[in-house]
Design a protein around this nucleic acid. Structure first.
Lengths: 233, 233
DNA sequence: CAGTGGTCTAGACCACTGA
DNA sequence: CAGTGGTCTAGACCACTGA
């Protein structure tokens, strides 16, 4: 845990707890550095992180201020569970399958392993406020994450589990998004008619060491779900 | 122009020109600092920027290396024209409408102007390699961008025009993406059947002063187009 | 082991803001 | 004008990699 992270977490906590209200000024960088007994550059680093998250607004010559905008996290990384909570919906899952299998050519290529190598497949129907919203299929390398099959996958965010149980944090993903029509099998999951439009996302996720940890596809029903993104620069 | 920017541009140029090939190592931070007569922290900053862009890969203990991945710009900001060129397709447009109208409640809310205020509407069919790929509807505030109606909209990127002719640069957008079925009017544009799946994006764009400059919807045919995103953290 | 990137320090001078 | 954030310096020690 770096000093920079400690400071940004401390500030984040003060903001999220309401100690620092929206548009309130935080202490100046020099003040914080002196109070905390660290160098100003270190304080700046911590503040950089919060500015990038959209929690703080910085302008030259003025004091740095707590942002009053809601969330612009769309661009970043959220698990299904997190995203639903941010939208004010209650997330829940139903596990349809959690098993070990052999990687076919496509999965192997995505995960950067050999064809035929063992992978974990987790299929879940994701609910928001008790309505089925998405069908998710996740592949994980077996060697590293084997133990996950013993855990409770219904009531947890997969990313939380990866972090808590395996100490790995997803930090980068490449994702594609396309519009498709549901097959009858897919439609059945949601209690809809075949031919209902759906968003199909394919995602490959990496951890801090840039190691591939997950390949996933998610099918969101088009009549209830809209993806939200923030794009910069 | 900061030293940091000068250094990152210099490195970016060496990479894009092929002077530094994929997976080739760049000089160490200490070497660069000495060569350029600057401090190592400044060099690190420049490298940070390129790492964030995905051009360089950095790992503790090893040399920093040029990335071999194609493009991961998806997360950022690209005009339709840019995006198509990056994918190796030739972009082209057909202007269906370019006119002035009064903002209805929805448009006014999106652009942050009064209902009934004048707005510019530009409707274009966007082609890739002579195949119609998307149908785009863009609203601009009339007061600021009136002169755009006199320009050639068929052969230009709108963002290029905004930058060249009005000195305004789109830097932030909020976008939503959903799956829909084409109406018969929409399908007709693409020569497809009604009910073909499509990606519908809605976007609101701001410039460096955080001023709203554009509200746009784009309908991409689902059978040919897949959106690509890079998500961080 | 030498060399690398990761983090941090204690300063400096600058441009900008608002009183 | 004092105070702020923006940039930069010239070091230091650390953890990690690969020979």
């Amino acid at each position: 845990m770096t000093i920079r992270l400690q400071i940004s977490e401390k500030l984040r906590h003060r903001i999220e707890s309401g100690d620092l209200q929206a548009l309130a000024a935080i202490p100046s960088e020099r003040e914080l550095a002196q109070q905390l007994g660290v160098s100003r550059m270190t304080v700046r680093g911590a503040i950089d992180d919060l500015v990038n998250e959209g929690l703080l607004i910085r302008r030259q010559g003025r004091k740095t201020v707590v942002s009053d905008e809601k969330i612009s996290r769309g661009a970043g990384f959220t698990s299904f569970s997190e995203e639903m909570r941010m939208r004010g919906w209650q997330p829940r899952s139903e596990v349809r399958q959690a098993t070990t299998m052999q990687a076919d050519v496509a999965i192997a290529a995505q995960l950067g392993i050999h064809t035929g190598a063992r992978v974990i497949l987790i299929e879940r129907v994701r609910f928001a406020d008790d309505e089925p919203l998405a069908f998710e299929r996740v592949y994980l390398p077996h060697t590293r994450f084997q133990a996950i099959l013993a855990l409770d996958l219904a009531n947890a965010s997969l990313y939380d589990l990866l972090e808590r149980e395996f100490g790995t944090r997803p930090v980068y993903a490449e994702e594609s998004v396309e519009a498709v029509l549901m097959s009858s099998t897919e439609a059945h999951i949601f209690g809809l008619e075949p031919g209902t439009p759906a968003l199909l996302t394919r995602r490959v996720t990496r951890d801090e060491q840039d190691t591939l940890i997950e390949a996933a596809t998610t099918l969101y029903r088009g009549d209830r779900y809209r993806m939200v993104l923030a794009r910069h620069r």
